[in-house]
Amino acid sequence: MDVLEAVAVFAAGVAAGGINTIVGSGSLITFPTLLSLGYVPVVANVSNNIGLVPGGVSGAYGYRKELKGQRARLLRLGSASLIGAVAGALLLLGLPAGAFKVIVPALIAVALVLVVVQPRLQKWTVRRREDGRHRPNGGPLLWAGVLLAGVYGGYFGAAQGIVLIALLGIALDDDLQRLNAGKNVLSAVVNGTAALVFIALWIVSDTRIDWWAVLMIAAGSTVGGLVGARVGRRIPPLVLRGVIVVVGLVAIINLLF
């Protein structure tokens, strides 16, 4: 990795850290960036996942005020995120590399659809909250949904935050900013757990990780997570979604062609 490539990956990390904190689609910035620099898809995904962990932590820290009173809920749901993340990470490394090239374009396409329809999902969750159709802790269906989101995030994490905020908004009666704070914690649990699995397998086997890419994304996403928590709400949502969709389409084209 030369200096210009390092700067590009760092900048992508800053953008991803901020986007993950606000929306939850940051991998649609960093993953295509690594692909464009010639990284093998599985290596890019593993390195990207590890690098985004500090950004997830900084984003959750930035929302610490909104996290007050959510400890019991997040411990319960965090167990689902942890189990799902382990399963997803093992699937990523256990399935043939060719499967990743087939599955990930479809996952990116689903993620892009979620990015586009997020405003409608958000309005729906607000209406449900106003109608009082919620259970205090979400019940077993929310736990199962968070588990599946964890599997998705452990395998390929783009837009897992959008999935989580939709699930939380549908199932819980709480302020959306508090739900977003909870989403940041659960996303950090997924990325952190998957990263530990990848690192453990790197130690005992030949799992490939590009540590320079990890370092640049980690540094950038840490900054981006803090910035996103403070000023991210000022970014026009339409502009943000437009950038994500364009980058995601570039990633699909790179993977398919």
Rank of each mutant, 00 (worst) to 15 (best):
G84E: 06
H134W: 12
V116R: 09
L147Q: 00
L114N: 03
P96D: 07
L95I: 12
A106R: 02
R127F: 04
V110N: 05
I162A: 06
K123G: 15
L121D: 08
L112F: 01
A72C: 09
R71N: 05
K65A: 14
G98L: 01
A72I: 09
G161F: 00
L93S: 05
V163N: 01
W124G: 11
G62H: 06
L147Y: 02
L91T: 12
G94N: 07
G138M: 08
F156R: 04
A97F: 02
I103T: 04
G145N: 02
R135S: 13
G98K: 00
V86S: 01
I108Y: 10
R128E: 14
Q122N: 12
F100C: 00
A97R: 05
K101H: 06
S81T: 09
R64F: 05
L114Y: 00
Y155K: 04
A144D: 08
G153M: 09
L164Q: 12
A72Y: 08
R71P: 00
E130Q: 14
G78I: 09
A106H: 02
Q160S: 10
P96G: 11
R133G: 10
V126S: 15
V113K: 05
L107F: 07
P119F: 14
Q118T: 15
N137D: 13
A166D: 03
G59R: 00
G69R: 03
A60C: 06
F100R: 00
P136Y: 03
A89W: 02
F156S: 09
H134P: 12
A159I: 07
T125E: 06
A85L: 02
G98A: 07
P119K: 14
A80I: 10
P140S: 11
A166I: 01
L91S: 05
A166E: 05
A87V: 15
V146G: 10
A149W: 05
A159Y: 01
A99D: 02
R128N: 14
L74A: 11
R135F: 12
L92Q: 05
V151S: 04
K65P: 02
Y61S: 10
T125N: 14
A97G: 05
R128W: 11
L147R: 02
K68R: 13
V113Y: 13
I103N: 02
